[in-house]
Protein backbone atom coordinates (compact mmCIF):
# COMPACT_ATOMS: atom_id res chain seq x y z
CA UNK A 1 0.00 0.00 0.00
CA UNK A 2 1.43 3.31 -1.12
CA UNK A 3 -0.28 6.50 -0.05
CA UNK A 4 0.42 9.67 -2.03
CA UNK A 5 -1.20 12.93 -0.93
CA UNK A 6 -0.95 16.28 -2.70
CA UNK A 7 -2.43 19.61 -1.68
CA UNK A 8 -3.25 21.70 -4.73
CA UNK A 9 -3.53 24.81 -2.54
CA UNK A 10 -0.08 24.44 -1.02
CA UNK A 11 2.76 26.82 -1.86
CA UNK A 12 5.07 23.81 -2.27
CA UNK A 13 5.24 22.91 -5.98
CA UNK A 14 3.23 19.77 -6.83
CA UNK A 15 6.24 17.88 -8.23
CA UNK A 16 8.13 18.45 -4.96
CA UNK A 17 5.13 17.20 -2.96
CA UNK A 18 4.97 14.03 -5.07
CA UNK A 19 8.75 13.56 -4.77
CA UNK A 20 8.64 13.92 -0.97
CA UNK A 21 5.68 11.55 -0.67
CA UNK A 22 7.46 8.89 -2.70
CA UNK A 23 10.64 9.32 -0.63
CA UNK A 24 8.58 8.91 2.55
CA UNK A 25 7.02 5.69 1.21
CA UNK A 26 10.49 4.37 0.27
CA UNK A 27 11.83 5.22 3.73
CA UNK A 28 8.85 3.56 5.40
CA UNK A 29 9.43 0.41 3.36
CA UNK A 30 6.09 0.62 1.54
CA UNK A 31 8.05 0.79 -1.71
CA UNK A 32 10.78 -1.82 -1.72
CA UNK A 33 13.84 -2.00 -3.99
CA UNK A 34 12.88 -3.45 -7.37
CA UNK A 35 9.22 -2.47 -7.08
CA UNK A 36 7.82 -0.21 -9.75
CA UNK A 37 6.18 3.17 -9.32
CA UNK A 38 2.66 3.63 -10.73
CA UNK A 39 2.78 4.68 -14.41
CA UNK A 40 3.00 8.48 -14.57
CA UNK A 41 -0.28 8.81 -16.47
CA UNK A 42 -2.14 6.79 -13.83
CA UNK A 43 -0.48 8.68 -11.00
CA UNK A 44 -1.27 12.00 -12.71
CA UNK A 45 -4.89 11.05 -13.40
CA UNK A 46 -5.44 9.94 -9.82
CA UNK A 47 -3.78 12.99 -8.25
CA UNK A 48 -5.43 15.35 -10.76
CA UNK A 49 -2.14 16.85 -11.85
CA UNK A 50 -0.52 17.15 -15.27
CA UNK A 51 1.46 14.06 -16.18
CA UNK A 52 4.51 16.23 -16.90
CA UNK A 53 4.40 17.15 -13.20
CA UNK A 54 4.62 13.47 -12.24
CA UNK A 55 7.39 12.90 -14.80
CA UNK A 56 9.32 15.81 -13.32
CA UNK A 57 9.04 14.27 -9.85
CA UNK A 58 10.15 10.90 -11.24
CA UNK A 59 13.11 12.44 -13.09
CA UNK A 60 14.13 14.27 -9.92
CA UNK A 61 14.12 10.99 -8.01
CA UNK A 62 16.09 9.32 -10.79
CA UNK A 63 18.74 12.05 -10.75
CA UNK A 64 19.01 11.56 -7.01
CA UNK A 65 19.51 7.83 -7.56
CA UNK A 66 16.45 6.75 -5.56
CA UNK A 67 14.72 5.25 -8.58
CA UNK A 68 15.92 3.99 -11.93
CA UNK A 69 14.39 3.52 -15.35
CA UNK A 70 14.05 -0.22 -15.94
CA UNK A 71 13.09 -2.21 -18.97
CA UNK A 72 9.58 -1.50 -20.24
CA UNK A 73 9.95 2.22 -19.41
CA UNK A 74 9.04 1.57 -15.80
CA UNK A 75 10.57 3.39 -12.90
CA UNK A 76 11.70 1.02 -10.16
CA UNK A 77 13.05 1.66 -6.69
CA UNK A 78 16.84 1.40 -6.39
CA UNK A 79 18.41 -0.39 -3.48
CA UNK A 80 20.03 1.77 -0.82
CA UNK A 81 23.82 1.82 -1.42
CA UNK A 82 25.00 4.45 1.08
CA UNK A 83 27.51 5.96 -1.31
CA UNK A 84 30.09 8.63 -0.37
CA UNK A 85 28.29 11.01 -2.75
CA UNK A 86 25.06 10.65 -0.75
CA UNK A 87 27.00 11.53 2.40
CA UNK A 88 28.44 14.58 0.63
CA UNK A 89 24.98 15.67 -0.62
CA UNK A 90 23.53 15.28 2.84
CA UNK A 91 26.34 17.34 4.33
CA UNK A 92 25.74 20.10 1.79
CA UNK A 93 22.03 20.26 2.69
CA UNK A 94 22.78 20.07 6.40
CA UNK A 95 25.38 22.85 6.18
CA UNK A 96 22.74 25.25 4.89
CA UNK A 97 20.00 24.06 7.25
CA UNK A 98 22.25 24.17 10.33
CA UNK A 99 23.56 27.58 9.36
CA UNK A 100 20.00 28.87 9.13
CA UNK A 101 19.06 27.33 12.49
CA UNK A 102 22.16 28.76 14.19
CA UNK A 103 21.48 32.19 12.65
CA UNK A 104 18.00 32.08 14.16
CA UNK A 105 19.50 31.41 17.59
CA UNK A 106 18.98 27.66 17.96
CA UNK A 107 21.85 25.95 19.77
CA UNK A 108 23.53 22.56 19.35
CA UNK A 109 21.23 20.90 21.91
CA UNK A 110 18.11 22.09 20.05
CA UNK A 111 19.42 20.85 16.73
CA UNK A 112 20.50 17.47 18.11
CA UNK A 113 17.15 17.10 19.84
CA UNK A 114 15.26 17.68 16.57
CA UNK A 115 17.51 15.35 14.57
CA UNK A 116 17.13 12.58 17.16
CA UNK A 117 13.35 13.08 17.32
CA UNK A 118 13.06 12.83 13.52
CA UNK A 119 15.15 9.67 13.42
CA UNK A 120 13.01 8.22 16.19
CA UNK A 121 9.58 9.13 14.78
CA UNK A 122 10.11 8.58 11.07
CA UNK A 123 9.36 4.97 10.33
CA UNK A 124 12.42 3.79 8.44
CA UNK A 125 13.40 0.34 7.24
CA UNK A 126 16.31 1.04 4.89
CA UNK A 127 19.88 0.68 6.21
Amino acid sequence: MVLITVDHNSKIPLYRQIREQIIREITAGNLKPGESLPPSRLMAGMLEVNFHTVNRAYECLRDEGLIKLSRGKKYTISSAVRSPKDMEDFETIERAVIAEALAKGLDATDIMQIVKKQLRTQKHVRS
Binding site: M1, L3, V6, S36
Partner: peptide
Protein backbone atom coordinates in the same frame (compact mmCIF):
# COMPACT_ATOMS: atom_id res chain seq x y z
CA UNK B 1 -14.87 23.66 -3.24
CA UNK B 2 -11.90 25.40 -1.63
CA UNK B 3 -10.35 22.16 -0.48
CA UNK B 4 -8.00 20.72 -3.02
CA UNK B 5 -6.30 17.84 -1.28
CA UNK B 6 -6.13 14.55 -3.14
CA UNK B 7 -4.98 11.44 -1.34
CA UNK B 8 -4.49 8.26 -3.35
CA UNK B 9 -3.78 4.73 -2.23
CA UNK B 10 -1.81 2.71 -4.80
CA UNK B 11 -1.07 -0.99 -4.47
CA UNK B 12 2.65 -1.69 -4.71
CA UNK B 13 4.00 -4.75 -6.54
CA UNK B 14 4.59 -6.79 -3.41
CA UNK B 15 2.55 -4.73 -0.98
CA UNK B 16 0.11 -7.54 -0.55
Amino acid sequence: ELNRTVSVDFVSDSGR
